[in-house]
Design a protein around this nucleic acid. Structure first.
Length: 573
RNA sequence: UGGGGCGUAGCCAAGUGGUAAGGCACCGGUCUUUGGAACCGGCAUUCGUUGGUUCGAAUCCACCCGCCCCAGCCA
């Protein structure tokens, strides 16, 4: 991707049914600003991740807002890495973040790094010192904390607060040259130690850090802090609407202070609520812990709320974008229910995923009156939601597998599937009737004997008779063995950290179930990684990168809505 | 206890003085060769509380209650 491309920031094209942008207070502000002719009606936004972790679904909301608003109003949106702290930032994260933004469907206009501005930021610092607005402090971190005061008590002035401009200039220059050890000195803004807003009590602008930076190498040993870098970076890029999350509300006064003192382009910051989702955690610190302690299998573990994890799980960019569009943009702290995300996931997958048949927990079925060596090709619809997806042939023969759950020797009320003496339809094949049950020594059901009605080929009933149920199947002789990974929520509680609990204690021990010996139809033998399917009546599944030709591995993205499970659950209570 | 932000249904959320949008979830029903999808219908006499202003208040005022953020040389 080139720097500063000239075309307007692009958002993905709307597919039919895509959720429209909804009214929200930030959008209203932009509309008003344009109407008022502010900045000549220009809209410039930016998405500013720190490259210290992978992007997650919470970032997706911010990305959709930043890029979406720019695109909607003919503006531009930059991707800018907020890389002011070399102690925790890595280029691995830079690469992953760029890949995720692009996968989500967005294209940035300018690609920048806060570190691009280190030189300018240094010059501005000198300017503030010269104007008597900044000074070098010799206080240690502990001392500075003591001097800062508390929420209810004002702070005390730094003993070095009134150093001469000349001395400050010289000291700051020597800091830059590397004459002092880490932590020995800082550059502070001279604002107001008695401010009720703690971020205005002479905040630190620069700290000494003798550490290699992923982009600037060893060029610098002093690094600006977020508050001293962010607003000015926005200003340099002439960002008109700088969107960030609620916790930065307190920082806005400082954001404005630097811009005013410097007399530079007046970017404006607006805060909105960050996304929280039930049954997961969204802080980078927590996600990093899960990865580092190997409680999950990496950043892209399909149980993670990271975009890379969700991608591997089988989520589509469209589903995530639609979900984000359905969300509100407000200033309320809330927790969105997982079901809302899942709704948009199913909605998109239903429209696009090809249907296939697969049996997760196989039960052998012998059709006694079917010719021993006959193999028939049954025509199956690839996607009832999309006629252009066409049809395919599925092989049928005397011995089949059906789902264990689709048979009950003693069927409860409302169970419509196969049972002794009962007739059901095999999807796209024949109507069969269960004649007998074979059990092993322990009494486990190991095989069913059924008969079929030759007149019902394709699943049709020339005599018009109805069966209550249609079940899926796969021909034993033509099935391919597969591994299927079933996922449940990573945590057992809606809020894993509720009441100050350690989120690790609420990990779901059953969040991953690996099934082997699953039987899938022949067409899936060499399925390509990342391909998404609907296994009929079961759910949506995505081919894992660990899959190999002949040995397919699937991740269950999400199950189909299951009315029977609901009925059964209700009956148990 | 200082400052800032926020409180509309189980969840998210419109609404900005004229008599409570929408989505998710949930509950019914229609249809169905996926108990899927689709479709139809139901779901807040009430907007954190209590007073006040007004012909009229979720919207204006006052008080109170609750939740979130800020005391990193993190972002």
């Amino acid at each position: 991707m080139k720097n500063l491309e000239s075309e307007a920031s692009s958002a993905p094209e709307k597919s039919s049914g895509e959720v429209d942008e909804r009214s929200n207070f930030i959008r209203d502000i932009i509309i008003q600003d344009i109407k008022a002719g502010k900045h000549g009606g220009r809209v410039q936004t930016r998405f500013p991740p720190e490259p210290n972790g992978y992007l997650h679904i919470g970032h997706a909301k911010a990305i959709c807002l930043d890029f979406g608003l720019a695109a909607e109003f003919g503006g531009q949106c930059n991707l800018r890495f907020d890389d002011t702290n070399p102690s925790r930032e890595e280029s691995e994260y830079v690469d992953a973040i760029m890949a995720d933004v692009q996968w989500l469907g967005f294209k940035w206009d300018g690609l920048f790094y806060a570190s691009d501005y280190f030189g300018q930021l240094y010059e501005w610092a000198v300017q503030l010192i010269t104007a008597g607005k900044a000074y070098v402090s010799d206080l240690s971190a502990e001392e500075m904390r003591e001097y800062r005061g508390t929420l209810t008590e004002p702070g005390r002035e730094d003993p070095h607060r009134n150093r001469s401009v000349e001395e400050n200039l010289e000291l700051f220059e020597r800091m830059r040259r590397g004459e002092f050890p880490d932590g020995s000195r800082t550059l502070r803004a001279k604002i107001n130690m008695a401010s009720p807003n703690l971020s205005l009590r002479d905040p630190v602008m620069y700290r000494i850090l003798h550490m290699e930076h992923h982009r600037t190498g060893n060029q610098w040993c002093i690094y600006p802090l977020y508050d001293y870098a962010h607003g000015q970076s926005d200003s340099i890029e002439r960002v008109t609407h700088s969107l960030c999350t609620l916790e930065f509300d307190n920082n806005r006064a400082l954001y404005n202070w630097f811009i005013e003192q410097l007399g530079i382009f007046p970017s404006q910051q607006y805060e909105f609520d960050r996304l929280s989702l039930t049954y997961t955690v969204m802080s980078k610190r927590k996600l990093l812990k899960l990865v580092q302690e190997e409680l999950v299998k990496g950043w892209d573990d399909p149980r993670m709320p990271t975009l890379s994890g969700m991608r591997r799980r089988g989520y589509t960019p469209e589903a995530i974008r639609n979900f984000c569009a359905s969300l509100g943009v407000s200033k309320t702290n809330g927790i969105t229910q997982l079901q809302q995300l899942e709704y948009y996931l199913r909605e998109d997958l239903n429209k696009h995923a090809l249907r296939v048949m697969a049996v997760l927990k196989p039960l052998r079925v012998v059709i006694d009156n079917y010719p021993d060596d006959l193999v028939e090709e049954m025509e199956a619809i690839n996607n009832p939601e999309d006629a252009s997806a066409g049809t395919r042939k599925v092989l049928f023969s005397k011995v089949l597998y059906i789902e264990q759950e689709d048979f009950r020797e003693d069927p409860p009320k409302q169970f419509y599937r196969l049972a002794p003496g009962r007739e059901v339809r095999l999807r796209y094949a024949y109507l069969i009737t269960c004649q007998s049950v074979v059990k092993d020594a322990e009494g486990n059901i190991v095989e069913l004997h059924c008969t079929y009605d030759p007149a019902t080929r394709g699943g049709n009933t020339p005599d018009g008779r109805k069966v209550k149920s249609t079940i899926h199947w796969v021909s034993a002789a033509h099935a391919v063995d597969a591994e299927v990974r079933l996922y449940d929520t990573l945590f057992t509680k809606e809020d894993p950290s509720e009441n100050g609990e350690d989120f690790i204690d609420n990990l779901n021990p059953n969040s991953l179930e690996v099934l082997t010996g699953c039987k899938v139809e022949l067409s899936l033998r060499d399925a390509a990684p990342a391909t998404r399917y609907q296994f009929e009546r079961l759910g949506y599944f995505c081919v894992d990168p660990e899959s190999a030709p002949g040995h397919p591995v699937f991740n269950r993205t999400i199950g189909l809505r299951d009315t029977w499970a609901k009925i059964e659950q209700r009956a148990k209570r």
